[in-house]
Design a binder for these strands. Sequence first.
DNA 1: GCCAACGTTGGC
DNA 2: GCCAACGTTGGC
Length: 152
Amino acid sequence: MSYWLMKSEPDEISIDDALAMPSLPWFGVRNYQARNFMRDNMKVGDGILFYHSSCPEPGIAGIAEVASTPYPDHTQFDAKSKYFDPKATQETPRWMMVDVKATRKTRLLSLQELRTVEALADMVVLKKGSRLSITPVTAAEWKVVMKLLDKK
DNA sequence: GCCAACGTTGGC
DNA sequence: GCCAACGTTGGC
């Protein structure tokens, strides 16, 4: 069992939107490292920190879990989609995704607060210049975050 | 809107 | 295979 942090822009899909769906196809990832995490490393049942990015208060907003094995992101084949990739074909898809099932909304554990927690200093998402939309979370970090979410 | 820090592209 | 130019992310 592994743990992940996945960024979503709440203007696009917030934790509330995600909770309203049976599961959410994580389409639109166009970064190879992030794709590889979904394609090669994620397992059904893995824990996910649902993170709101590019918004007034960025931070962890909920909990989710991996709900499918990897499969091709259909938006890469759709010429009208902003995620269209002319180099991808049905035979050799370039972009893979998984389904994500939101399980609960949490208090907003802000980026600002995360940065004050010593035990989380090495979290990939907090590293300087980190822009990856999907990053691994260690079991120890997950535990610390769960504890922080229960507070107050 | 700014801009640091990356990632990607394409000419050579 | 190098690397300059360009594009993107995302906090501020």
